[in-house]
Design a binder for these strands. Structure first.
Lengths: 190, 190
DNA sequence: TATAATTTTCAGAAATTTCTGAAATTAAGA
DNA sequence: TCTTAATTTCAGAAATTTCTGAAAATTATA
């Protein structure tokens, strides 16, 4: 497996960035290679192309499956598993976004919820809990917004992302119409 | 420095999550403690409260300064540096968002831009470059959207995040008005 | 059912990251 | 300027994460 130098650079870079995106170097490289390669690859091919051990590939693929980023293929008369990334580039970005939301937000929301249950015993604890409440409210809203974005149809997501500064005008416009476009989350003013 | 158990749990959790959010345990703990504590703290107090070395605190604070998440204070007649987190919870979230965008997106955009400059030498390279172009377009749009969100006024950001499924209705509405609310990024249909 | 091909698991090796203590540096006050 | 307090730096120790090779488990086919 000899990779074109462009592909090589792409794969190595995704390996480097992997740790910033929530996975390790191998997983980053596997993801990049499976994304850029036009056909499905088996574990042996992946190990050869990335010059890493077969077992490391196995673990990496398992991780990518946990992230829902790869899918299995089979060639007739070949019992080895062949892999590609799951869906279009946009599908993949969406999945990464959702999985990261799960891993980066959910555990904290769960802990903060728990901390907010206990009664503060003194002034100091009361102040702390107030701050915790603030952080909680923010993260909860962020989680809801992330979910909204996740559920948006591709067409709408594109439209939204391309709005640029038009967003604020649209929002302003909306409030002028006072309820003309009802939101599911916000009560209409009396 | 004895911390209330709530605070303790909050701080430890942020330490654990730190690595998922782009910093290490110490930085996560420092950030949490400075956020939840009502008054500015000096390095010695931080080291005592978190039971870590003075030098580790120094490095952690340096890192938090690089993230623009802390600010310095001084007490009259005391030459030690006292620290708090910079601004409100929302300010902090915004800063984390911006800094993460820088660290997680910019290096990749820069590399991909570079890869797109070279001429593909064969079919294989051409296919690869096509994929790179797709990834680049997506990330570029994401970067622009992130910037738009960053620049949004707090009031507008809240409004947007609270829209929920109302977003698609608003977007739909907008296209019906064909240019009624001009966007800076999208050409009006002829 | 036995054999062979493939994949997974996992203990420990290797690599990387984080943390500490000692020394160096900076800066304020005497 | 000298002294002392405070902070920073950094080499190496400690902790953590990643990776490998060998063995075990799984799966298909003869």
């Amino acid at each position: 497996m000899k990779l074109p130098s462009q592909t090589q650079a792409f794969v190595l870079h995704f390996g480097e960035m992997g740790s910033r995106w929530g996975f390790n170097r191998t997983v980053g490289q596997l993801f990049a290679l499976l994304t850029i390669h036009p056909t499905p690859l088996n574990a042996e091919q992946l190990a050869a192309a990335l010059k890493i051990s077969r077992s490391n590939v196995s673990m990496g693929l398992k991780e990518l499956q946990a992230w829902r980023l790869v899918e299995l293929h089979h060639q007739p008369g070949d019992r080895r598993d062949y892999f590609t990334t799951a869906g279009s580039i946009w599908d993949l970005a969406r999945t990464v976004f959702e999985e990261r939301r799960k891993r980066e937000l959910d555990p904290t929301l769960s802990l903060l919820r728990q901390l907010l249950l206990s009664e503060p015993q003194d002034k100091q604890e009361d102040q702390a809990q107030e701050k915790i409440q603030e952080v909680y409210s923010l993260l909860e809203l962020l989680e809801k917004f992330a979910n909204t974005l996740s559920k948006l149809e591709h067409k709408d997501l594109l439209k939204l992302m391309k709005l640029g500064s038009g967003i604020s005008k649209l929002l302003e416009f909306r409030s002028k119409m006072s309820g003309g476009v009802p939101s599911s989350n916000q009560k209409r003013l009396p």
